[in-house]
């Protein structure tokens, strides 16, 4: 997925995707990030996984 140049951190990526304030968990290159790690720099080669909670039993 292409993102604009101003998206440099996980935090700005979430804002770009309209996910700020939503319940999400981010995995960067297989490492699960804590909220305090959202200032981590995003590179174009990174593999980013974003998960959320959905209905389930």
């Amino acid at each position: 997925m292409e993102v604009p140049d101003h998206v440099k951190t996980i935090e700005s990526l979430l804002i770009h995707l309209g996910l700020q304030g939503k319940i999400v968990v981010v995995e960067q290159n297989g490492v699960i990030l804590k909220k305090e790690d959202y200032s981590a720099v995003v590179k174009s080669t990174d593999s980013i996984e974003i998960v959320t909670f959905v209905g389930g039993g």
């Binding site: 997925m1 995707l17 309209g18 996910l19 939503k22 999400v24 968990v25 996984e49 974003i50 998960v51 959320t52 909670f53 959905v54 209905g55 389930g56 039993g57």
Partner: peptide
């Protein structure tokens, strides 16, 4: 209870 799933980032709303 709930499940954990990949976010649909193309429809975040």
């Amino acid at each position: 209870t709930f499940a954990v799933r990949r976010m649909n980032i193309f429809e975040p709303s």
